[in-house]
Design a binder for these strands. Sequence first.
DNA 1: AAGTCTAACGTCAACGTTGACGTCAACGTT
DNA 2: AACGTTGACGTCAACGTTGACGTTAGACTT
Lengths: 350, 350
Amino acid sequence: MDERRLSTRPTMRDVADRVGLSIKSVSRVLNGDPGVSEAKAEHVLTVARELGFRRNDLARSLRLQDRTETIGVVVRQASTRFYDSLIRGIDEVAARHGALVLTATTQSAEREQSAVLALSSRRVDGLIIVPSGEDQSYLRAEAAARMPMVFVDRPARGISADTVVADNVAGGYAATQHLIARGHQRIGVIGTRSSASTMSERARGYRDACREAGLASEDLVRWNAHGQEGAQQACEELLGLAHPPTALFALNNVCTIGAVRALQGAQLSRQVALIGFDDFDTADLLNPPVTVITQDVEEMGRRAAEAIFSRIDGRPTTSRREKTVLPTTLIARGSGEIEPDRPVARRIGA
Amino acid sequence: MDERRLSTRPTMRDVADRVGLSIKSVSRVLNGDPGVSEAKAEHVLTVARELGFRRNDLARSLRLQDRTETIGVVVRQASTRFYDSLIRGIDEVAARHGALVLTATTQSAEREQSAVLALSSRRVDGLIIVPSGEDQSYLRAEAAARMPMVFVDRPARGISADTVVADNVAGGYAATQHLIARGHQRIGVIGTRSSASTMSERARGYRDACREAGLASEDLVRWNAHGQEGAQQACEELLGLAHPPTALFALNNVCTIGAVRALQGAQLSRQVALIGFDDFDTADLLNPPVTVITQDVEEMGRRAAEAIFSRIDGRPTTSRREKTVLPTTLIARGSGEIEPDRPVARRIGA
DNA sequence: AAGTCTAACGTCAACGTTGACGTCAACGTT
DNA sequence: AACGTTGACGTCAACGTTGACGTTAGACTT
């Protein structure tokens, strides 16, 4: 009764044979196109259901030269909260456009390229990329073919495209000024890679604020603090200096958590101020609660998705690249409001 | 010089025309097949690069009936940490098999089906699903077509397939017993949906332990604590009872964080014990540090991916379904070791 | 009665790629 | 000199689907 090859999915051909119609009529029914009698249409649908027919969208989008109704997202698995929120924002907009969001995650910067190209080979309608590699010029071909692309969190290098980023410089500046305003003169900084633009911009904001206040800064910046352990060690090193900083600025949330760990370990949570870049779930539950600079990551996702769809829906890919810069906000919770221990003489004077 | 239609990607045809070879020879070169002279092969590669040629994998896998070298993952965006770790585990194994992992996230249980079917229509080689809907019988067609499928975290309903889950009952039992051993007799439970098997199994472990110890339990279980706010409210309600619980068991990490918030708000963090199911980043930094039952989510991802690939690589999809149950571990950090306030009389007696 | 129209179908070719198989010239063998 | 072998190509058909364009038979017009 069922002579089809095993382990192969039924096609319109199979449905058509069973119903006694041409494959084209089946296609019509399944796409809701007119030109098939009510009765036969009904029959087609029944048989399709019975056979477990699932239209092969690969073949479909091969034929219909245009849309696959799919957008690709490429992110590196690293910072915790970022990923979730970003996708949520993208999903929200994509759902409104009836598109599917497929995310490819990469462990390393090197695999970014293969993930991106794999999505491109699958002919997604657009790409949202959080670049982690040093160079995105491998996307020149896609750019030439006018594939809509948006870079999020950091701008691409070696290629020009729409970009959605947070105002990292302003965030770094705000954090630093907040600390300076409370009397801190020695502010330590912990970051991962100085080559990442997010990191270097946050640090630039820090340096700008320091310079404005007439503070030296460079000797208190520690790069290459990878993972929570790395960040913790970097903090411990800073705290162990002859002239230790009285405040810390952690450039992302992994660093922030490492810093909290270092401060708790050294029993200094209540003496040394801390501000972290990017909020995290339990920031308000720690002791003291952690003051942070937040970026609205979900909004970044929404903006990126909107940019993609506006390109897909006609805005020419050759038109001027847009760079969206989203503001950051300081949320004071306690750790950033700790004042430096003042010299005894001045304390008496106060 | 460049007369191709705008905004269309170059195909092997374009490369072939430029080189003056047949399309088949180009295909050979691009696949590293033999039968093309060194010199021409070189030329083909150069031209392909110049034109920005990217093989259309849709067409390729349409032709080669077999693999797309892609596996699909469908998860619901909800619990924080779970997602990241799971994908990391899956990615690790997939990378070893040279496959791409494409993740579709869904906001709601209703959209699970459309995401799964979209991946199926794109002919992924296998599906890893964290079911959130109530029923997965919509996958019958895929099962009939022997599409490899693995369900993670919860078993599917309405269809049988390989499954990878944590030992939720044992975890719930261990948490409860840990509290009972420290003298707690009234243990409150906060969970989201009693209909989710993870939740109900953890609660079953709790009830088993209570029954064994001769404790009543049911009136201290609070369901439908959605989101951190919901969990916080549910806890506050429990703590406000005439006979409040002396310990809390939060059934997932969102609930745990809500519970911490409630306890801190009521200044009871050091009086009421707390154990959370599933670890989270800052659990050891809270005050007191939070005792948790951990499940190795990354390992769940690895096992699921291994199961998928073993099905893809030949293990017949008709062979017996395997259910992998991973152990859970209790990590004592402080919050779970708080003892109940004993009545004065007994305290003197001790 | 011949013509026009329409609904309900069908045929064909094409999307981009690759397996199966064919052609042809150059070469080595006996 | 006839034969087989080999390397370097090319042709064709097919994967599953759909747009463009037939082909019928019946209903409706004049």
